[in-house]
Write a protein that binds this DNA or RNA. Structure first.
Lengths: 249, 249
DNA sequence: CGAATCGTTGATTCAACTCAACGCGAGTGG
DNA sequence: CCACTCGCGTTGAGTTGAATCAACGATTCG
């Protein structure tokens, strides 16, 4: 199978992860013209104020979205791993209100917004599947608000580690005991509303307490139950594998 | 015009606020069976873990969504004013991951999820309009992450005031100089990741600095430019009135 | 009028920030 | 091959913004 086909298969599986698509829906997705594009670490996929004509599917690597506030501070508002959809927001909102940047070397399946919208109009089930993904994204951001607003540094950090562990697991990128975490402590701080120094201290206590171990850019969860308890984590908000509600007859 | 018709008109205008619907789309919306329901202050519209069969349009009053974290803390994740759509998330995600509660007496136009989905499938433009609303909701939540994560109490509070002022303005509920703010300081704290005591002090300094004045449960913006500067506010993220991007030929 | 809720204020504590220095490994170039 | 730089991680000392604790005032409402 040529690379393009494998990528499209990933896209179809992503959208069909809740079993809502029929053969014609999947065929319509097949007809979307795609190109693969690679981004270097730190490279911008999209900048605040841009009006992009494309969206994408992250096939490998890490990508994050962030906002810059008035005093120069940066807040990371989401972290994406394969196979997340990127910039679904831009399908219907013209102007980007945040930056999207590659964290590691990232490979992205790029589609034209017009083409995706055309399929969404032609095949309502595809529209619902895309829409659903954006609702899950939103749900994750809401949990981040609660995490940053109401949990202390230790819980907050543990919660993010749990989220990334589960998302890696769901994505089939390893189990939740060991996963890649290529973010610097500066970036972790910007994701959690903390400083790099405090992230360092918080991770250290998690490690000396025997909850996690770290090596270079990967994390091993030594005690999942304790990490989950510390982070006050429940995976409900990730909506991992619900059927699309009762309205499917 | 009977009350039901006026309510439906509000719904149609909300979904058509970007001019994407044609006569048939609007007619399809007309056929959605609706009932009006009133909620008392503090009454729950939805609880975490529920699997609702309805969604709604807020016609009057204030509603907020919140999450409860492990140590009992509460984080408000969004505030809704008329004519916001409520629980669009539940159209495609079965299980609610947060609570929805009336802040004031609230009047809601209630629709069956099945009926809304049916129209979304039949009329793709309606699906896109609903989807778009949920993307704007998500965009607001992302801004909240940045606000809570990276701004201090003064900026954070000013930013929320700006957001509510502009949203009231856009909704035609008064201009951005005077608006109703029926939240207690406790609730403002829960929205901003601060304590009620600190909200009190922060509002006081904004008032003594001549930026705002308060009376009971309404706020007057004495110096909009200064409030905007203090709050590092730009309304881009509210996506107030963009055309649905370039893909409309 | 009494009770309850909400707002206000002061005193104190603490979690996280800031500032500063140093360690360490990976590249890089002389 | 070593010296240098650069980015990142680590650690300590001191500061501070916001929380906590506690009390009291104001308003509403039955």
């Amino acid at each position: 199978m040529e690379p393009g086909n494998r990528a499209i298969a990933l896209l179809k599986d992503k959208l069909d992860s809740h079993g809502a698509l029929d053969a014609e829906d999947r065929a319509a997705i097949d007809r979307i013209p795609v190109v693969t594009r690679n981004y270097e670490p730190g490279q911008y996929l999209l900048r605040e104020g841009d009006r992009p004509k494309t969206c994408g599917l992250l096939m490998s690597g890490f990508v994050y979205r962030h906002k810059i506030v008035g005093d120069g501070g940066r807040q990371i508002v989401s972290i994406h791993i394969s196979p997340d959809l990127l910039d679904v927001q831009q399908l219907l909102l013209a102007e980007a209100d945040h930056n999207v940047q590659a964290l590691t070397l990232a490979s992205v399946l790029v589609m034209q917004i017009d083409d995706v919208i055309a399929v969404a109009i032609e095949r309502p089930a595809v529209a619902l599947a895309l829409w659903r993904q954006s609702l899950v994204d939103a749900s994750i951001v809401r949990e981040w608000v609660a995490n940053i607003g109401r949990r202390d540094a230790r819980a907050r950090t543990a919660h993010l580690l749990c989220e990334l562990a589960v998302r890696h697991d769901v994505a089939g990128l390893g189990d939740r005991r060991v996963f890649e975490l290529p973010m610097t402590q500066e970036q972790l701080g910007d994701a959690l509303g903390l400083t790099a120094v405090h992230i360092n201290r918080t991770l250290k206590t998690l490690e000396t307490d025997g909850v996690i171990t770290r090596s270079k850019r990967s994390v091993t969860v030594a005690d999942w139950n304790r990490l989950r308890t510390i982070g006050d984590f429940s995976s409900t908000y990730l909506h991992p594998r619900e059927v699309i509600a009762a309205h499917r007859n």
